[in-house]
Design a protein around this nucleic acid. Structure first.
Lengths: 223, 223, 223, 223
DNA sequence: TATGAATGAGAGTTCATTCAT
DNA sequence: CATGAATGAACTCTCATTCAT
């Protein structure tokens, strides 16, 4: 099996969203502040100070604190979803695509741990969290996108059949997420860890997320 | 493969440990209220009203709102960890043990969806969340417990070697958690769903969490 | 002038007020706790703990926290007023009587600094303080008692005439009080200071309170 | 005895130093409210209402209720200390200076009884009162300033030697304070009293504070 | 007498949001 | 666009007081 993974990753973090410079400064500051103090633990004033803009300007660009978080979330997930799309349209099998998705997530953590921190730990804290609103829709969209890729793989005979693609997608994303969480909170290696450590963990996460823990060739499952 | 899973499960929800009756009422009410309105979205008054006690009594038993959440968390996870221990000491292979753990998580959701909701969605939102404090320690303990079981399975030759047990444990718990999340937020079936739906999902979650999505007998991994 | 002061002092601190033992324990504890943490800075629970009695017992003996403070105040001032009476009825001139009063105040501070602390710093903090209620009446009574002694001295030709006895009384008590305050807060010597230091300060306080700062034999006043 | 006292007084109440208009309004309102209901007996809402500003604005300018009281205290004593400095640098003997200080205190009471009420009755009741913090330092500074003037008088031979200047200073301020207290609580004349009453009391306070109650020409002291 | 769990009004503080400039 | 003073509702926590035992 070829080791040419990078060719399907295509991360290319767009280093800006739309809008004027100060708006981006606020968004960028929000990521850092949310990551450091948490959504509920920070004040609009903190974001404004971090962005180097006046208090009131935050409200010029965002209707409310919640909308600010949603914007952060939407922007980050847009990147993630965009990456998934790029990967899907790239070469490789469905399994390779899914692996590339995991790999991309781990890479982003290496590059921008704050953003991952916010996505993983803070986003569900918005007043209605994943229960309703744009955040939930975005989350569901990502899940279905992965599930769709699983289905394609099943149809192509590359992936095991008989598993609900949605369950499989949740398992893959969940594996990725909890491993990221473990890194975020310091149970696994920190983002500042040595390159090879991160690389090794990444490889294992991909391996387990897709291949499970059971030995190859073993018949049924454990349950 | 035999279908005698229940023999290793041994859930036995203890009717909530120590403390006087009113204390337990408050704890129980907190689970419901946190589940319904979220930790940040509810007031102590809501908990007191739900418990049918006076406002001040909450502060008679718990130092602060945060401590109340931590107590809920500790109590719920104690149940989960206790179940893991019981499962480990029961009969069956490591793989069966891990499967039983997943199964137990899904069962609890069926029995007490509010508790799962709080554990999954609310706990990480305490002021310091998983970053520090007893909550983080409890989380890490559970993770290491699972990892230990994985290691035992690897040593016994029942599970694939070459995978960091901690990574594998995070993958298993993450699969479980995100599938539960998907159910909690309604993307997958609700807890009120038909028995057979839940049973089917449970089986699949276990299957994917442990066995991955790659077909049996296939050699390496996808990445 | 004779140096036989002690003969007119007759302090004799009654080491108990009426009521059962536990009541006295509470009163005694209140003095210590009020002295250490202040009336508004302490809770009934603190007093109960210090007294070694149950929470509710405080309310068995005292109608309210305020009544507890008033009881402390009344008891302490009763001692002070009783001493003034004893001094008045003892031998010596009016000036000697007044000096003995000051001396008594300083002596009590040496013996029971906590009690003085409460009288000086805490009593006026009761909800209505010196503005109304029994506390104010007690304070006024003491002031008038001193003023009366001044008047007697003036009539006997021992003290300067032409000064309102009430003003003079306030001046004497004020001198005493602010010197005690300075000691209480540590600007002057602490109660733990060497005997001779306290003795010297006491002598000077008496001297200045009664004799002023102007040199003897000088005609009018400075103003 | 010359009646030219006013030349050394130089009160000149600065119309309350720095800060925007609303800040001063809050400070001014705090003086009135603290004077009327006491520090512990009033709520921030009372101050805000009295100042005609919104609740939250109090916290925009002052970190806490306690800081508000400290600010009131600091501002009032700044005026007092400034007056003492002005008096010291003005013409006249040390005795005249001390008399002018007493006179100034009495004058302020006539002009702004509320401020005096707060200084006398409320300030020591802040959580740590005179025991620690800026309040205690300010108090000590004033005391030492007076003591210094006493020392100068002693060195110039205008005042009796052999008295600790600090004790003498405490006696003078104490005389002043307790006479003010007696006026504040209504035992002596009210600030609304006739001019001549206040003038007479003022004269007597000065006379007693500096000259004591012993007759002129009498040798030793009473104690 | 004695206990301490139970009560609930009250107040300090925070901070998202608005608005005049 | 930009600013930051001004607003006030909301909420946590405290603690004096009551009461059943």
């Amino acid at each position: 099996m070829p080791r040419r993974r990078r060719q399907v990753v295509a991360p290319r973090l767009p280093d800006e969203a739309g809008g004027p410079e100060k708006r981006r400064a606020i968004l960028h500051a929000a990521v850092r502040v949310f990551a450091r103090k948490g959504y509920h633990g920070c004040r609009i004033a903190d974001v404004a100070r971090q962005a180097g803009v006046a208090y009131g300007l935050v409200y010029h660009y965002f209707r409310s604190k919640e909308e600010l978080l949603e914007s952060v979330f939407a922007e980050q997930w847009a990147i993630f979803i965009q990456a998934i799309h790029a990967i899907r349209e790239g070469p490789g099998s469905a399994a390779e695509h899914l692996a590339a998705v995991c790999r991309f997530g781990m890479d982003v953590f290496r590059t921008a741990p704050d953003a991952v921190r916010v996505l993983i730990l803070e986003v569900p804290r918005t007043p209605d969290g994943l229960r309703a609103g744009g955040t939930r829709r975005t989350f569901e969209a990502a899940l279905r996108l992965i599930a769709d890729e699983v289905r394609r793989g099943q149809e192509a005979g590359e992936l095991r059949r008989g598993v609900d693609p949605l369950v499989a997608a949740a398992a893959i994303l969940g594996s990725l997420e909890l491993n990221l969480t473990a890194m975020v909170v310091g149970i696994l290696a920190q983002p500042a860890a040595a390159e090879e450590d991160l690389e090794r963990i990444t490889r294992q996460v991909v391996e387990v997320a897709l291949g499970g823990v059971l030995p190859r060739g073993r018949g049924g499952t454990a349950g």
